[in-house]
C-alpha cells in the first residue's frame, strides 16, 4: 500500500497554497470545487458507453471514431479534456493500456487512476511481459489472441472496448454496464456474464 504523505509534504502543501492565496492566484474554494468535480468521475461512465456500443451499432461507430463526442453524448463534459481513443478488442486481438512514462489515464471517464496503474511494477512490466501481468488478474488469453499493449505516451487517452461476453443475449444496457468493470476498460480483465 502507498505510504501516507510525510509531515514535510503536508507542510509544503499548506505553505504553497497559503503563498498562492496571499498573491491572489488561487483560493481554497477554487481548489475544493475542482476536487468535488474530479471526485464525480467514475468508471460507471465508461461502462455505460461500452454497454451502449454493444447494443447500438451507430453508437459503436461513433465511439471508435470520436471517443470524445461519444462521451459527450452520455452527458459527460469533455471540455478541456484530452482526445479519447477507443481500442476495439476482437476475437484475435486484446488491448492492454499502460503509461510507462507517467500515469496518463482517461480520467474524465474512469476517475482517478488506481494506485496499481501508477505503480513502478505495472508501468515497467505491462509493456514487456503483458501475459504475466494479466495472469496476476486471473486473465488468461490463448496464444491465438494477439496482445496489443498500448503505451499512452502523448496527447490521447485510451480506453478499451472489450468484447461482449457470451450469455448476455437479451440483456438491457443497464445490466450490460454492470459487468463492465474499470479493470476491463484498462484491459487487465474481461467482462464476465
Amino acid at each position: 500500500m502507498a505510504a501516507p504523505p510525510r509531515a514535510e509534504s503536508l507542510a509544503l502543501l499548506e505553505r504553497l497554497v497559503a503563498a498562492l492565496e496571499a498573491k491572489g492566484i488561487v483560493t481554497e474554494a477554487e481548489i475544493a470545487d475542482r476536487q468535488a468535480n474530479t471526485d464525480k468521475a467514475s468508471p460507471e461512465t465508461g461502462a455505460r458507453m461500452v454497454a451502449k456500443a454493444w447494443t447500438d451499432p451507430a453508437y459503436r461507430a461513433l465511439l471508435l471514431s470520436d471517443g470524445k463526442a461519444a462521451a459527450e453524448m452520455m452527458g459527460v463534459s469533455m471540455a478541456g479534456a484530452p482526445p479519447l481513443g477507443v481500442l476495439e478488442d476482437t476475437a484475435t486481438r486484446h488491448h492492454l493500456v499502460v503509461c510507462t512514462l507517467c500515469s496518463c489515464y482517461p480520467r474524465a471517464l474512469l476517475g482517478y487512476p488506481p494506485n496499481w496503474y501508477k505503480s513502478f511494477a505495472y508501468r515497467s512490466r505491462a509493456v514487456r511481459e503483458p501475459r504475466a501481468v494479466l495472469a496476476e488478474w486471473g486473465t488468461m488469453l490463448p496464444d491465438s489472441v494477439e496482445i496489443r499493449v498500448v503505451d499512452s505516451t502523448a496527447d490521447f487517452r485510451w480506453m478499451v472496448l472489450p468484447m461482449r461476453p457470451a450469455g448476455t443475449e437479451g440483456w438491457d444496457e443497464a445490466r450490460l454496464a454492470s459487468i463492465v468493470t474499470r479493470d476491463a476498460l484498462v484491459g487487465v480483465a474481461l467482462p464476465k456474464a
Binding site: V127, R128, E129, P130, R131, D143, E146, I147, R148, V149, V150, D151, S152, T153, A154, D155, F156
Partner: peptide
C-alpha cells in the same frame, strides 16, 4: 503530427510471444 506506431514485442525484449505487439504514440 502525432502517429500511432505499432512494434512487434519479441525483437524489443528478446522474449515474449511472437505476434504480441506494442502500440505507441510517437511525434
Amino acid at each position: 503530427h502525432l502517429y500511432h506506431v505499432l512494434f512487434e514485442q519479441p525483437p524489443i525484449w528478446n522474449e515474449g510471444r511472437p505476434g504480441d505487439t506494442v502500440m505507441v504514440e510517437v511525434f
